[in-house]
């Protein structure tokens, strides 16, 4: 019964399949370029994923015989869906990375002198562990009382979640989303919706800033302008940016919290925003908007099932199995952002 995640034991003689990954060159270097508040976690010194910090070297000395490396892919909960998703965990630096997969239909790789189907590209990017902790804090809040963190972060389904308890500066992180009490030098925490919404609003704001710097097209309104007026640079409305950022952040929180955040940000109610802003599609055809939506939904579903059925390499299968359920394709952000945006709110 323990074979679901086992590695691809390809029959001898078969070609070993490859996956393409983008990893941080060196977290230390990368964050050196960013302003201090952009630090995901304090690294102490500049340190590549290969270096041992004093914090973990003892552990690694012991475990390296078996562990072999400080980086491992593990399955943890996806805080949005509650299902499983794959993460990369750096034991040395005590850092969490999320894994996203880019996949476009009808693509393949040539890798040196070989061919690789699927055309997948994996991204490993640092993830704020507080999103995962928040998932457990909200779950534990049903008890309605202050609890120590090691009672909060428990998961029969994803036992690797206890790795989260080892992350540095947890107390500082938790301050953003909890009320805390200290009794006999032990900390007890309770989810605070009020603080959490404040924290999420800040997340939305810094995401809006990044959307602007990266010139991300944030709305149908923007797109249609661009469509009708050629290369004219269109400035998106602030609300479009906020809505888009809200959509991105919502991938890391529950539906309920996402709705609360939407209200907190004073974004229009879902019903109010349903009549879409005038977009190129609507203007160019008389087809009812709804039909179009259904059609695209059908399409994307179709794509998904096809993804599952399509031939995957053994390695992809192994990874996909770890994860498939909860992992979102980057595609869904960047390929169909308008649909996603509208569906989300």
């Amino acid at each position: 019964m323990y074979t679901a995640l086992s590695p691809s034991r390809s029959r001898s003689g078969t070609f070993s399949a490859s996956s393409l990954y983008l990893l941080l060159e060196s977290p230390g270097d990368l964050y050196a370029d960013l302003c201090p508040q952009r630090f995901l976690l304090p690294f102490g010194s500049v340190c590549t994923p290969l270096c041992l910090s004093s914090f973990t070297s003892e552990y690694l000395k012991d475990a390296s015989k078996k562990m072999k490396s400080g980086l491992m892919f593990i399955k943890l909960v996806n805080p949005c869906s509650g299902e499983g998703a794959i993460y990369l965990f750096n034991i040395c630096l005590q850092q969490l990375f999320e894994i996203k997969v880019f996949k476009e239909k009808h693509h393949s790789w040539f890798i040196n002198q070989s061919v690789q189907s699927g055309g997948l590209l994996h991204f490993a990017t640092p993830m704020d562990p507080l999103f995962l902790l928040l998932h457990y804090l909200i779950k534990a809040d049903k008890e309605g009382k202050f609890q120590p963190l090691d009672q909060v972060v428990v998961d029969d389904k994803f036992p690797n979640c206890i790795l989260l308890l080892k992350l540095p500066e947890l107390e500082k992180l938790l301050r953003h989303v909890t009320e805390e009490r200290e009794i006999d030098k032990k900390k007890y925490y309770k989810f605070s919706k009020e603080k959490t919404l404040k924290w999420l609003e800040k997340k939305v704001n810094q995401t809006v800033a990044a959307l602007k710097t990266n010139n991300v097209n944030v709305g149908a309104r923007v797109q249609s302008t661009a469509f009708f007026s050629g290369d004219q640079v269109s400035s998106g409305k602030e609300e479009d940016y906020i809505r888009y950022a809200h959509g991105l952040i919502s991938d890391y929180i529950s539906k309920e919290l996402s709705d609360d955040l939407s209200k907190y940000l004073k974004l229009p109610e879902p019903s109010a925003s349903l009549p879409k802003p005038p977009s190129k599609k609507v203007k160019l055809s008389d087809e009812p908007v709804e039909a179009k939506e259904d059609y695209t939904k059908f399409n994307s579903k179709d794509l998904k099932t096809e993804k599952k059925n399509s031939k995957m390499t053994a390695a992809q299968k192994a990874l996909a199995k770890v994860d498939k359920s909860g992992m979102k394709s980057i595609d869904s952000f960047f390929g169909v952002k308008n649909k996603k945006r509208i569906g989300k709110i």
Partner: peptide, 9 residues
């Protein structure tokens, strides 16, 4: 984008 989403506030 991910760097902004996951940066500490």
């Amino acid at each position: 984008l991910a760097a902004a989403i996951h940066a500490q506030v």
